[in-house]
Amino acid sequence: MKLAYYPGCVSQSTGKEMDASTRAVSAALGIELVELPDWNCCGATHVSHELVATGLAARNMAQTDLPIMTSCSICYSNLRAAALRLEEPDTREKVNAVLDKKYSGAKIRHALDVILEALTENDERIVVPLKELRVAPYYGCLLTRPAGLYSPEFPTILEKLIKRLQAEPVDFRLKTVCCGGPIFMPQEKAAEDIALKILSEAKKAGAEVIVTVCPLCHLMLDAKQKVLEQKHGEKIGIPVLYVTQLAGIALGLGPEELGLFMNSVSPMAMVERVYVRLSE
């Protein structure tokens, strides 16, 4: 399978491990990724003008005829929402008037969906089944909203993938609650309060690891975890992996390839447990 790959801006900075693990897992599953040529920022959650946001997304989508895959739920939601708006002839006309390459339709896929589709039940490429690993499936907002392929409030696709990797999804009440990420710069306290609630809840649910599908969720739960612990005097110590990192571990890929050393809360003790259980 050949897909266009939209890495998104964070692939160059805070989400380097997301990018590395996406490329490594795709290669391991025989999915050929062609990086979208000269891609631009999708506007994230900070471009209020809908038509401008649609135009920025359309320029990206016009660069290829292949289905476009991204690992970032913000990019995914923006491209998908733009593709919906561009179905309206008036919007498409206005946007195409300012584009070099014209937009003529696009199919947008999240890496999560691509990986799940590529893996069969008891796939022999899963050389390190994640036996007994208790995983909190954290969807956040933008994989499932606006409504599309998945239920915006009770999605199950992450649980499906977790089970396919032979791990155990925990019942995670806050799985579709916002992480607070989009406002963390100007509204620090509000954002941190929400992130802390999600981390505490995952811990209460007995998770050994949280899996995310969005670099901003990841930043809030992983990179900010230590600060949240200090501020609230609550020890959390729970690793947070991108879905591509979790799948990569099950596929037997190494920590270097998956960027596991770039995570703030080290997942290495958890990885060790996975290997120990495998040998039991």
Binding site: W39, N40, G55, A97, V98
Partner: peptide, 30 residues
């Protein structure tokens, strides 16, 4: 302090080639 030692701060600003087009998208559609 969290991101720098992990190499997760991009120190260079990457400029894309289609900057004029992006500028036009923003200014015209605005």
């Amino acid at each position: 302090l969290e991101l720098l030692p992990r190499g997760k701060i991009g120190l260079e600003i990457e400029k894309i080639k289609g900057r004029d087009e992006v500028k036009r998208i923003i200014e015209e559609l605005w």
